[in-house]
Structures are given as C-alpha cells and as structure tokens.
C-alpha cells in the first residue's frame, strides 16, 4: 500500500497548495475555575447521571465500599489501597470469568467536577480495562484531591501514553426515541465513593 500512502499525501499537498498552516496549538478558553465548591459540584454532577455518590472520611472507606457491594464475587486490581474482604485480585481473568463476577472495586487517576467524570488510566489500583467493564457493578474510590474543576485540567493531568477510560455515570443509551435509559453493556451500576480529608 506504499502507493496509497504516497497518493494520499500527494493529494493532500495538492489540495493545500498555498495554504499556510499554523505552528502553534490553538488556544481554548479556560474551563470552570477551582473553588471551594468544586467537590460539591463533582458529587452533584455524578449524581445527575443516576450514579450513586457517597462521601466519607478515610477511616470509613472500607465499610462504605463493603456496603456498596452486591451479593456475589468481587474482583479488585492489584495495588488497590482499600481493603475489600473476600475479593479476588485480578491475575489475568478471562472475559468469561469476569462475566461471572458481580462487582469490581477500583480507584481512579483523576476526576472532573464540571462534567461529573472519573478517569481511569488503568495503572496500579485501577487494573486492566476489562475488569472495570465486564462486571455489572463498578465501585470507584475517588480521593478528594483527585477532583479537578474541568476537562482542560484533566487533560493536563493525564498521560496520553496510557490507555484511558473516561466514565460519566453508568452505561446509557438514548437510541430508542431519544429516551435516556441507564444500563446497557457497561456496568449498569456506578457507585462513586468520595474520600475527604
């Protein structure tokens, strides 16, 4: 296909003859500013997606997570700082095995207040992409200091070399009469535990 490559590049150059490209990245207006209300905004926006949001102190995390878990097997990634009793640590479970698991508990890399988004970069404490996808319940532990105000802050904080998953509420669809329904292929329940202090 070397000729396809050459042809396309030649066609692009011919189409752009005389057009000057700008060297500097285009600037974007700032997002919402940080403030004392950032964490409240995050919780409010996550709840808007019909996800469950709970706030707790560091000593209550284990209990809050445990209370959020349904009956059945639970999987956790390596390096999760929260103790989850009886949970299986992922050691390369197949998709079929994960399908039999009821819930997963992970941390996140960053969270976005304005959009109510948690972002996983699938490092330690977050695990492979598959483990937070196949089980039907996802419990995500977010430290208050991980919450940034808006999308530009999140992009600046993330490493694009890593695979990233931005999660804003449970899976959803509006494909039937534009009527929003929560719960399709991704986890049908998203439970966000926000740890303060």
């Amino acid at each position: 296909m070397a000729d396809a490559r050459a042809d396309i590049l030649a066609a692009v150059r011919a189409a752009l003859a005389g057009v000057e490209a700008s060297v500097d990245p285009a600037a974007s207006p700032p997002g919402v500013a940080a403030g004392p209300g950032t964490l409240d905004l995050f919780c409010e926006r996550v709840a808007d997606y019909r996800a469950v949001v709970q706030r707790c102190g560091p000593e209550e995390v284990a209990a809050t997570v445990a209370a959020a878990l349904p009956e059945g097997d639970v999987v956790v990634p390596e390096g999760l700082p929260v103790e989850v009793e009886g949970a299986r640590v992922d050691d390369g479970l197949t998709a079929l095995e994960l399908d039999a698991v009821a819930a997963v508990v992970t941390g996140c890399a960053v969270a976005v207040a304005e959009t109510g988004t948690i972002v996983l970069d699938h490092g330690p404490g977050q695990g492979r992409r598959a483990i937070s996808l196949v089980p039907d319940v996802h419990v995500c532990v977010v430290r208050a200091d991980q919450v940034v105000p808006d999308v530009p802050d999140a992009l600046a904080a993330l490493d694009p070399a890593r695979p990233l998953t931005w999660v804003s509420g449970p899976s959803a669809t509006s494909d039937i009469e534009l009527d929003r329904v929560e719960g399709v292929h991704g986890p049908r329940t998203l439970h966000v535990v926000v740890v303060e202090g």
């Binding site: 990245p25 285009a26 974007s28 207006p29 997002g31 926006r45 808007d48 997606y49 976005v112 304005e114 959009t115 109510g116 988004t117 992409r129 808006d150 999308v151 530009p152 992009l155 600046a156 694009p160 070399a161 890593r162 695979p163 990233l164 998953t165 931005w166 999660v167 804003s168 509420g169 449970p170 899976s171 959803a172 509006s174 991704g186």
Partner: peptide, 30 residues
C-alpha cells in the same frame, strides 16, 4: 495535532451531540 487540543472538542461534542455534559464513556488508546 496535539493532546491538549482535544480540550475544546471534548467539551463541545457531548453537549452538541447527545445533550449531555459528558458522554458515559470515552476511551483513548495509543
């Protein structure tokens, strides 16, 4: 062109498209 230039697009697309502040899932891989 650059990673940072995703910013306006990721803010514009979900609101314009599904009328949400952010779509449920965005995946990136390199």
């Amino acid at each position: 062109p650059t990673w940072g230039e995703l910013d306006p697009l990721l803010r514009l697309l979900p609101r314009s498209s599904t009328g949400e502040r952010m779509n449920p899932y965005t995946s990136t891989w390199s």
